[in-house]
Amino acid sequence: MSRPQNSKLVVENLQRAFGGVKAVRGVSFSLAAGEVLALIGPNGAGKSTCFNLLNGQLRPDAGTVRLDGVDLVGLPPRKIWRLGVGRTFQITATFASMTVAENVQMVFLSRARRLLGLWTPAAGAFRDEAQSLLERVGMGAQADRPCGVLAYGDLKRVELAMALAGDPKILLMDEPTAGMAPGERQDLMALTSSLVRERGLAVLFTEHDMDVVFGHATRIIVLDRGQLIAEGPPDAVRADPRVQAVYLGSPA
């Protein structure tokens, strides 16, 4: 396993089985601040299981997951989130009846553990902070619209703002461009890459669109049947015969 300098996330020998099916088998990798790491592989490769092991939705049968030296294995998702692991989902997770700004404010409130009294208005809490994040992701003008009326690509931007409101060190993005038009996909990942540089984030994302993967990942890891079969910069992974055989196909 290669280990980037200043690694924030270090995964070693991660394993998880469901009955007789070994979904993740001895996976090890590291992720450093400023990296955009893509996790790819064919359907059933173990990508979603690996994601769920990292943020505590599943517990590994073996292996360690460390964030800045702190072992995350066995911690509940809310604790892992507070330690700095944020996540976006393939299907957006917003409150449809609440405004765009309110969705982001809710994350700030949760992060601050603020309990408002029965008669204390929450509408103004962290409004400026939410507006600033929404401006950054291109949603400032829609702050007062209900999320339920937004186009899907705009919902993805709101979800990104919500993830950033949690002040993550590591951002896990599960199929971030699923359901988006090609132009929207590239725009969202370009935005993500710029946020990585600005904030010193580390991003791990899964994606089926290879134009997105090879256009925006700084490094790629490839799973097949639960095992890591390749790791490296995009050009090296694209040329790897094993990756071509199980996922990309032979070059023309």
Rank of each mutant, 00 (worst) to 15 (best):
R3T: 15
N6W: 02
K8V: 12
V10Y: 00
G20R: 13
K22W: 10
K22G: 01
A23Y: 05
A23W: 03
V24Q: 09
V24P: 09
V24G: 10
V24S: 10
G26Q: 04
V27P: 06
A33R: 15
G34M: 05
G34H: 02
A38P: 03
L39E: 04
L39D: 06
L39C: 04
L39N: 04
G41Q: 02
G41D: 02
G44D: 05
K47P: 05
K47L: 03
T49H: 11
L53A: 09
G56Q: 00
L58N: 00
D61K: 02
D61I: 07
T64G: 00
T64L: 01
R66C: 13
L67P: 06
D68W: 07
D68M: 01
D71G: 02
L72E: 02
P76D: 13
P77W: 08
I80A: 08
W81V: 14
W81E: 11
W81C: 15
R82E: 14
G86T: 13
Q90D: 12
T92H: 06
T94M: 12
F95C: 12
A96R: 13
S97C: 07
E102Q: 15
E102S: 02
N103Q: 05
V104M: 06
V104F: 07
M106W: 01
F108L: 14
L118C: 03
T120I: 03
A125R: 14
R127A: 15
R127Y: 14
E129V: 00
L133C: 08
M139T: 04
A141K: 15
Q142F: 12
C147E: 02
G148T: 04
V149M: 10
Y152D: 01
R157C: 03
E159S: 00
A163N: 09
P168K: 09
P168Q: 04
K169W: 04
I170A: 00
I170K: 00
D174I: 08
E175T: 05
P176W: 06
P176S: 04
A178T: 12
G179F: 07
G179R: 08
M180C: 07
A181R: 13
P182S: 08
Q186D: 12
D187P: 01
M189N: 04
A190H: 09
A190P: 01
R197V: 07
R197A: 15
G200R: 06
L201P: 06
V203D: 10
V203A: 10
V203F: 09
L204K: 05
F205G: 12
T206K: 07
E207I: 06
M210R: 05
V213H: 04
G215M: 07
T218I: 10
R219P: 00
R219K: 14
D224K: 11
R225D: 10
G226Y: 10
Q227V: 13
I229G: 05
E231H: 12
E231A: 15
G232H: 11
G232V: 11
P233G: 09
P234T: 13
D235G: 08
D235T: 14
R238H: 05
P241N: 09
R242A: 15
V243W: 09
V243H: 07
V243N: 08
Q244D: 03
Y247K: 09
L248Y: 05
S250M: 11
A252Q: 14
A252L: 11
